[in-house]
């Protein structure tokens, strides 16, 4: 059974005068350990797709099953709980908690999971060392560069030991070197922890490193190719 099964997914936004069909009959499957880029021009539905898979938004039609759990059956706090334990997120603008240090940002997710202080500190340090920030664990986001912040965000996404990580344009705010370093890091983590990564991007550097590329256009899967 695939880790993520998506069947006939539609998403229509009715908030505008003319309803917008952001996703149109999307059917996809993702296996464990994949390193996939979801690509397409602006407005093609990449972010909407990630929001659906991440359980942040509800589809108008269709089904998303993650590791045997149909997301439609999870409501309110159950869905939040599911995200906490199964899905990691990396955002374009890093979105770390500004008043927490790097260590605390990573630790915080494990606190939500109810993990003991010693265990979460140990794991947070391990993860920060794994992303190359072992010497900056007590720095706050404001004291870190964009690349370093995004590394902390990756460590945070992995802290809950998720089944997969959704990254929405993770390199969009990074310079070339930081973007390359981040991609290398994510590849290593993907290999080492067998964590599935799904990116939305239109950054050629990310597309080049992906092992599978799903192309969306006007909300439809235009291409799905394994590299």
């Amino acid at each position: 059974m695939a880790l993520i099964e998506i069947e006939h997914l539609d998403k229509i936004y009715n908030t505008t005068a003319v309803p917008v069909k952001a996703l149109n009959d999307v059917t996809l499957q993702f296996e464990r350990g994949e390193f996939t880029s979801v690509v397409g021009p602006s407005g093609s539905g990449k972010t909407t797709f990630l929001n659906m898979v991440g359980g942040l938004d509800r589809p108008t039609k269709g089904k998303i099953v993650i590791d045997g759990t149909n997301l439609a059956e999870l409501k309110g706090s159950k869905l939040v709980e599911f995200r906490l334990h199964h899905i990691g997120f990396v955002f374009q603008a890093f979105n770390l908690i500004p008043v927490f240090t790097a260590l605390e940002n990573v630790e915080f997710i494990m606190l939500l999971q109810g993990i003991s202080k010693e265990e979460r500190q140990k794991r947070a340090i391990e993860l920060l060392e794994a992303v190359g920030l072992g010497d900056r664990i007590h720095s706050r986001p404001g004291q870190l560069s964009g690349g370093q912040q995004q590394r902390v965000a990756v460590a945070r996404a992995l802290a809950s030991k998720p089944e997969f990580v959704l990254a929405d344009e993770p390199t969009a705010n990074l310079d070339s070197k930081s973007a390359e370093d981040l991609l290398t890091l994510m590849e290593e983590l993907n290999r080492e922890y067998q964590t599935t990564f799904i990116f939305s991007t239109h950054d050629p550097r990310v597309i080049k490193r992906a092992r599978r590329i799903v192309t969306l256009c006007d909300g439809k899967v235009e291409k799905d190719e394994t590299v």
């Binding site: 706090s77 709980e81 906490l84 997120f89 997710i109 939500l112």
Partner: peptide, 16 residues
């Protein structure tokens, strides 16, 4: 607002 959205996305319940 955005930070709250992120926190809920990563698994923090509204009650918390």
């Amino acid at each position: 607002v955005k930070e709250f959205g992120i926190l809920i996305a990563v698994g923090m319940k509204k009650v918390r």
